[in-house]
Every structure is written in structure tokens, then in C-alpha cells.
């Protein structure tokens, strides 16, 4: 008889001094990490379209440019770590400096397009939200097994868009509720 996982509770409004004070935890890919450097700017919005200003946190987890995940030895290194954590700023935005992940296999021989896993924590969220970021225009998106589970009309909520002005910068709004609500996954 398996044990029952401990219940989640909100991260609350006052996590910053403990969880996001260590700037190194936001560095997903150190200077020696191989691959195409990108910056991912995520803006968190509530059901009224207001940014989540400072009382929200995003964690990301991704494969590297070789499609592999980092091991423990990369925790503090200059190479690829794959994990990042940032609080939102006063505009509801957090920016991750990383490399573009490569495609990786799926759950049962299926395919996955390059993607970044996201966890969203905030005051007002009793459980963290799970979603993914994909890259707009990526040919592999059409064969991705997770995107295929999402109703076609909602897939755009997961597609980061390249900035026309700044090469390497990708932007995506995460709408927690309401018009254009982001697709969240039951993981």
C-alpha cells in the first residue's frame, strides 16, 4: 500500500528572502554550457490582466543543447544545470538566461519538440502550476506528444515568440486565469 504524498500549501507572499535571494539558482546555463544562448522572458498575469508583482516565482527545468539532463555534479559548475528559479519583478516578469534545449524522446517512443518545463508558485496558488514553454516556428512542434494533447486553439498559449528587436530573446505571457488562459498540465 503506497504512502500518500504530503499535501501542498501556498508559497505565500513572503518567500523571496529565502528562495530567490540566491541569484546563482537562476543561472540555468553557466558560461561554459554549449548551445544557442537564449533569454526567456516570462510575464505572469492574473484573471484581471494584472501582473503578479514580486509575489510569484517561476522554476524552470530543461534538457541541454544535447537533449540530456544535468546531473548533480553540475549544481555549482559553469556548465549546463538545467534548473532556474526567479521571482517576478514589479512588472510581473522574470528572465532566464539559458540555452535552447534540443528535442528529446517522449514517454513511449513518442517525440518531443524542444521545450522547457515550468512550475509557477505564487500567493494565491495552493498548488504550484505546471506548464511548458515551446518555441514558435519550431518544425518539431507538430510532432510533439504533449502539444498533441492540447486543444489546437489553446496551443498558442505555450508558444514563446522571438523578439523582433533583440536576437535570442523569447517572450511568453503566462495567464493564470480568464481570456487566453495558459494551458496547465496535470503532471
Amino acid at each position: 500500500m503506497p504512502l500518500i504524498p504530503t499535501a501542498s500549501q501556498t508559497v505565500g507572499p513572503f518567500f523571496n528572502f529565502a528562495l530567490t535571494a540566491d541569484a546563482a539558482l537562476g543561472a540555468v546555463a553557466g558560461p561554459e554550457a554549449p548551445g544557442e544562448r537564449i533569454r526567456l522572458a516570462l510575464r505572469l498575469l492574473d484573471g484581471a490582466g494584472e501582473p503578479l508583482r514580486g509575489d510569484a516565482m517561476v522554476e524552470i527545468w530543461q534538457a541541454g543543447a544535447d537533449g540530456q539532463f544535468a546531473g548533480a555534479e553540475e549544481t555549482a559548475g559553469a556548465g549546463f544545470r538545467g534548473f532556474g528559479r526567479r521571482e517576478t519583478d514589479t512588472d510581473g516578469v522574470c528572465v532566464f538566461e539559458t540555452v535552447k534545449p534540443a528535442a528529446e524522446p517522449g514517454s513511449r517512443g513518442g517525440a518531443q519538440a524542444p521545450h522547457i518545463n515550468l512550475h509557477v508558485f505564487a500567493r494565491g496558488l495552493l498548488r504550484h502550476l505546471c506548464t511548458r514553454v515551446y518555441f514558435s516556428g519550431e518544425p518539431a512542434n507538430s510532432g510533439d506528444e504533449a502539444l498533441a494533447l492540447v486543444p489546437a486553439e489553446r496551443r498558442a498559449t505555450l508558444l514563446a515568440q522571438p523578439s523582433p528587436d533583440e536576437p535570442g530573446l523569447w517572450r511568453l505571457d503566462i495567464r493564470l486565469q480568464g481570456e487566453g488562459e495558459t494551458v496547465f498540465f496535470d503532471v
Binding site: T10, G47, L52, W61, A70, E104, G106, S107, R108, V150
Partner: peptide, 30 residues
């Protein structure tokens, strides 16, 4: 819990089979 009113998603989450991304995870042993 009033803070949830504008922050809790209204649409059901999409069930996702666990792929290598969900089954791996950051290690902090070192």
C-alpha cells in the same frame, strides 16, 4: 482564500503522461 479568486485557473489541467522531462529533476547533492 481570497488571493485565489483572480489566480486559480478556471480551465481543467490537461493530463500529461510523464516524459523524461518530468522524471528527471535537478540534483543539489553537491
Amino acid at each position: 482564500y481570497r488571493s485565489t479568486l483572480l489566480r486559480a485557473p478556471r480551465l481543467a489541467p490537461v493530463p500529461l503522461p510523464h516524459t523524461p522531462t518530468e522524471l528527471a529533476g535537478p540534483r543539489f547533492d553537491r
